[in-house]
C-alpha cells in the first residue's frame, strides 16, 4: 500500500508541483485548496500524512492543524507544514498546536520525500 498524502495549498502551482513530485515518488496524492477544504479531505480520505501551507484564505494552516488535532478525524496523523516562512514564532505556534514538522519552501524533492517517510507511521 502506498502512503496517501494530503497536500493543502491555496496556490494551484504549489498543489500541482506537490502532486507531480509526490506521485512520482509513488505516493497517493489528494490536494485541497485551503484549510477548510483540507479538513473535508481529511475526513474523506484519512491520509497518512498531511502537508499544509500556512497562509491560505478561508482557513489557514494553523486552523487546519487545530481542526485535525481537535478530533475531526485521524487526530494523530503526522502534519508537516510547508511554508516559505521559517520564523521561530510561527514554528512555535505550529508546534504548540500540533504540527509534526516544518519544511521550508521551496522544497527539494529528496528532502520532502524523506521528511514524509520520516514521519509516516507505515
Amino acid at each position: 500500500m502506498s502512503l496517501s498524502i494530503l497536500a493543502v495549498d491555496d496556490s494551484r502551482t504549489m498543489r500541482d508541483l506537490l502532486r507531480l513530485t509526490l506521485e512520482e515518488a509513488g505516493f497517493l496524492v489528494t490536494t485541497a485548496e485551503d484549510g477548510a477544504d483540507g479538513v473535508d479531505k481529511v475526513i474523506e480520505n484519512k491520509p497518512d500524512v498531511i502537508i499544509t501551507d500556512i497562509n491560505m484564505p478561508v482557513m489557514d494552516g494553523f486552523g487546519l492543524i487545530e481542526a485535525v488535532r481537535n478530533g475531526v478525524c485521524g487526530t494523530s496523523v503526522p502534519i508537516l507544514v510547508l511554508s516559505t516562512e521559517s520564523s521561530p514564532e510561527l514554528k512555535d505556534r505550529a508546534r504548540n498546536i500540533g504540527a509534526t514538522g516544518w519544511i521550508v519552501k521551496p522544497f527539494n524533492d529528496t528532502t520532502l520525500i524523506s521528511a514524509i517517510r520520516r514521519v509516516a507511521r507505515v
Binding site: 508537516l80 521559517s86 514554528k91 519544511i103 521550508v104 522544497f107 528532502t111 524523506s114 521528511a115 520520516r118
Partner: peptide, 15 residues
C-alpha cells in the same frame, strides 16, 4: 538564506 536553505529545518538528512 531562505533560498539556499533547501534542507528542512526539523527533518533533514538522508536515511
Amino acid at each position: 538564506d531562505c533560498i539556499a536553505a533547501f534542507t528542512p529545518l526539523a527533518l533533514s538528512g538522508e536515511m
